[in-house]
Simulated scan of single mutants.
Amino acid sequence: MIDIAREYRVALPDWIDEELAHVPTALPSREDRMRLVHRLADRNWREGDGGPFAALVAERESGRIVSAGVNVVLSSGVSSAHAEVVALGLAQAATGSWDLGSDGLPPHELVVNWRPCVQCYGATMWSGVRGLVVAGEGPELEELTTFDEGPLGADWAEQFETRGIEVVGDVLRDGALAVFRDYREAIDAGEVVVYNARGKAG
Rank of each mutant, 00 (worst) to 15 (best):
Y121K: 05
D99W: 11
V167E: 00
V194F: 10
L110S: 07
Q92M: 15
H22L: 14
G89Q: 05
R130M: 06
E185A: 15
E143H: 04
A94S: 14
A94Y: 09
P52C: 13
G175Q: 03
P151Q: 00
A58Y: 10
R60G: 04
E191Y: 03
R173D: 10
Q119A: 07
M34W: 01
F147D: 00
E140W: 04
G50T: 04
G77C: 05
G138N: 06
G199L: 06
Y8C: 07
D155Q: 04
P116E: 02
V111W: 01
A58D: 12
Y195R: 12
H22Y: 14
A157I: 03
A197P: 01
M1L: 06
H82F: 11
W114Y: 12
Y183T: 09
F53R: 08
W114F: 13
A189T: 09
A5G: 07
A123Q: 04
R33T: 07
R35I: 11
R9P: 00
V129F: 01
V111T: 07
Q92G: 13
V179K: 02
A21R: 15
E149N: 01
S102N: 09
A55F: 13
G51E: 09
G96L: 12
E61D: 15
A81T: 06
W114T: 01
A91D: 05
T162Y: 02
L20A: 14
E143N: 02
E161F: 05
L105G: 08
E137S: 15
D99H: 08
Q159E: 08
A93E: 15
